[in-house]
Amino acid sequence: MEKHVVVIFPHPDDESFGAAGTIAKFREEGVRVTYLCGTLGEMGRNMGNPIIANRESVPEIRKKELINACKVLDIELKLLGYRDKMLEFEDRKEVASHLKEELEQLHPTLVITHYPGYAVHPDHNALGAATIEAVGMMEEQVRPEVWAQAISDNSFAMLGEPQIKVDIANYFDKKMAAILAHETQAKGILGNFKEHSTIAKDLSEAAQERLGKEEFYVWDF
């Protein structure tokens, strides 16, 4: 059984859309979970539907949404302070050193992050790569396992079957509650899922179709 899981993603809502079911399962088992969130997602295009934010107010609103989502999931939160859409331009070794310091303080047994090169968004790929570099820099005897989440369309063809498949059926309602805590993002993203679905009748079905399973690759160091 894991003792402490640290989730490292770049944006508010990445934890909810990507791994909330897995997080909820760990919390039900009594496992401590900490989210290291890279940015405030301040350059995101979604401002709510109806609109509740503007370019000036969105950072603080997304921060509050993130705090609310973490309360829903009952997890600890630490903001890393990077700038949205700029992570790919940060010095990777500096980011990795920063993350290594954080991880050495938290002593995780498992780290969850994005699979670099297969995570669609440049911030996802950059922070995923820095996270894996950070864990690789740790002493082997204290090095946590890494689960990397690949979300690009070609990930299965290129990487094969994920080793970790988490059944989140019992936690899907919790996942949806966490997603909906991100008010500026939820309806726009869920609506996009429905728009591109040929079978979903409503947002709930579209969410279930796209988000009803969580799978991870175990990183081989």
Rank of each mutant, 00 (worst) to 15 (best):
E161Q: 06
A69K: 06
E140I: 02
T131A: 08
A169Y: 00
E183C: 05
M138S: 08
F172G: 00
K85R: 02
A178K: 03
E101T: 00
M138H: 06
E205C: 13
R32C: 05
F9P: 01
D13F: 01
A178Y: 05
L66W: 04
K93H: 05
H196W: 08
K213R: 05
Y35D: 10
H121Y: 05
Y35E: 07
A134D: 07
N46E: 11
Q105S: 03
I199T: 15
P50Y: 13
T39H: 04
P59Y: 11
N46Y: 11
Q163D: 14
V111W: 02
W219H: 15
A148T: 14
I8Q: 03
R62N: 07
H114A: 09
A24C: 09
F26T: 02
N125H: 02
S204G: 11
G30M: 12
F216R: 12
G117Q: 01
K85S: 01
M86R: 11
S204H: 14
A181R: 06
K64C: 00
A207H: 02
F172T: 00
H98A: 00
L80D: 01
K201W: 06
G128D: 05
G48N: 10
Q163G: 15
I179A: 05
E195K: 15
L110R: 07
M43Q: 09
C70A: 13
I51Q: 15
K175V: 02
N68A: 12
T131Q: 09
E205H: 13
Y118M: 05
E42R: 15
G212R: 01
E28C: 10
T131G: 06
T34D: 10
E28M: 14
T198K: 14
G188L: 11
G136K: 08
H124Q: 06
T113N: 09
H114C: 10
